[in-house]
Design a binder for these strands. Sequence first.
DNA 1: TCTTGTACCTCGAGTCGCTAGAGGATGTAG
DNA 2: CTACATCCTCTAGCGACTCGAGGTACAAGA
Lengths: 140, 140
Amino acid sequence: MKKITIGEAARRSGVKVPTVRYYESIGLLPAPSRSEGNQRAFEPADISRLAFIRHARELGFEIEAIRTLLTLQDDPHQPCASADAIAKARLVEVEQRIRSLMALKAELETMVEGCGHGRVGQCRVIEVLADHGQCTHSHH
Amino acid sequence: MKKITIGEAARRSGVKVPTVRYYESIGLLPAPSRSEGNQRAFEPADISRLAFIRHARELGFEIEAIRTLLTLQDDPHQPCASADAIAKARLVEVEQRIRSLMALKAELETMVEGCGHGRVGQCRVIEVLADHGQCTHSHH
DNA sequence: TCTTGTACCTCGAGTCGCTAGAGGATGTAG
DNA sequence: CTACATCCTCTAGCGACTCGAGGTACAAGA
Ligand SMILES: [Zn+2]
Ligand SMILES: [Zn+2]
Ligand SMILES: [Zn+2]
Ligand SMILES: [Zn+2]
């Protein structure tokens, strides 16, 4: 079996080189063996783990959640309730965030569309920012 | 004219006390005069400025964007094109973020719904996280 | 074999927008 | 006068990286 350098691990997993080292430093990725010259030598399992982490990060899971998910993955006999709970919590988060962003979008549209592109003194953008009472939604 | 303490400024503007000091420290809020005992004494204009900052933050504008917006606000004779550009850029950002979160939501729903709540070995959540190829959207 | 160039190493600091805590001074009400 | 809330400065910490300095290792070409 040939050794996988950090650069190749990065290329294969889509995680950047410094980030790979960072994940190792926080214990998310086990410290790999080293070459004679002290360079990291990864194995295929590490690449899978990195890809898992990257995918979970892309889906917005926090590092601590990923740590839990990885621990679960390491022991396939456990019930998956905690994994499902983490995913469900993330889903709720995402739904809330979408709702909040939709409200924001509406306010921003009003601001942008309402402006006649004249002087700052009459700018609707500045005006609305200065006075939340002009917003259609009271909570952002 | 009575002096406004930092606590009252915080209460009136909705910005927390340490955050008010932080805004002063980064030059977003002018340093107010001080009492004999070295305590900050704000004026009504500072409260408006704080409220403006808070509102802009709630709408997701970055500090540097707010700095620009405040500079514009300070001189009402300038054309408002830059203010509008900032708001429009923020709108585009928000729209992109919403689209991205909608895709995420779909993936998370598939994961959560597909799981039979058995063992980790068969958990759909873990399975999808380990293999992005199982996602319906190729880009997150 | 030597040289060149790329990739690797560690360590510390910086990013953003706050937030928390230590340790002390000031202001106000009873 | 004594509590007690509020204020002050300063430093450090959060999450999740990202960057730079200063140095080492390794593979390919002359
Ligand atoms: Zn305008
Ligand atoms: Zn508003
Ligand atoms: Zn499951
Ligand atoms: Zn995916």
